[in-house]
Nucleic acid binder design. Sequence first.
DNA 1: GAATATACTTTGAACTTCAAAACATATTGA
DNA 2: TCAATATGTTTTGAAGTTCAAAGTATATTC
Lengths: 156, 156
Amino acid sequence: MGFTEDKAALLNSFLVEVFNQILKTEELSIDLEGFKNLSLKELHVIEAVCIGGEQGRDNCSAAIAESLRITPGTLTIAVALLEKKGYLIRHRDEKDKRIVRISPTDLGRRANACHGRFHDEMIKDILSILNEDEAAVFIRALGCISSFFRAKNTKS
Amino acid sequence: MGFTEDKAALLNSFLVEVFNQILKTEELSIDLEGFKNLSLKELHVIEAVCIGGEQGRDNCSAAIAESLRITPGTLTIAVALLEKKGYLIRHRDEKDKRIVRISPTDLGRRANACHGRFHDEMIKDILSILNEDEAAVFIRALGCISSFFRAKNTKS
DNA sequence: GAATATACTTTGAACTTCAAAACATATTGA
DNA sequence: TCAATATGTTTTGAAGTTCAAAGTATATTC
């Protein structure tokens, strides 16, 4: 006992702290980048649309909603607003008029690129404070944790 | 180049993935624990109040709002609802009647204990897949990252 | 005792979310 | 064909979350 409990408590407090800090920093970065118009969640919608486009995925409402793990109704509302703000465009499929496809405007693509740069910066910052070996262990550990959660969440 | 970019890309994808998985798992755990009445954010308010109590911190509105990194107005609204739901209690300081102190009810403490068990489980899970050395490096790295963000966010 | 500072609350507005109902279009089977 | 059913999206109603700014109450300072 003792050492193990200390480790657990430390890990927990660091994890919670880093978690909150990343969230806040990410939120802050949006304003700084000049897209004061956008919330973090809206940015993630734009990101999902852009990623779908890059990967040649079928960018219909349902697919994007699923990739974001939100309901179709929620997505409709978010996209309606983002269309009004000029970041996304909706167009109905000619063949199957039930389907709505969503794509980014140039402005949307620029916002997404900005957000990508934030992520790059953050990663660069993290790597800058770890040495070679620590970085390797850290990345490996994160990979393990990621797989672990994936396994845990799919089986239940 | 090459290796560095690979590391950065890997770290980014793992980080994003773990981040989302933790959020999702945490949200899921609330319902499972039987507090269907509470959102994740409400639980975090209760947690901040309980932690403040344990640490003998002055549990006034301002201190709790700051620890949660939300505005006082936001906290007021959250606490008013949580008081109505029976998780928290507010009482004005006798000496300085401007100050409102917030404390958990028994129900609030029970909800927090439940949430604490979720965190314990998660930490145990993470530690179980890392060996002794990896765990030490991982914790140290997280601590560095936490300090780094704290420094970055306070200075700007 | 008036001016100022401090601590919290209220207000108004915008965003986020969901479940369920509604709508539009497509497919299927008699 | 056309009625039933399925599919894809939108609307609706309700509740949460958040902030900035204005408001209220109390305390401190000069």
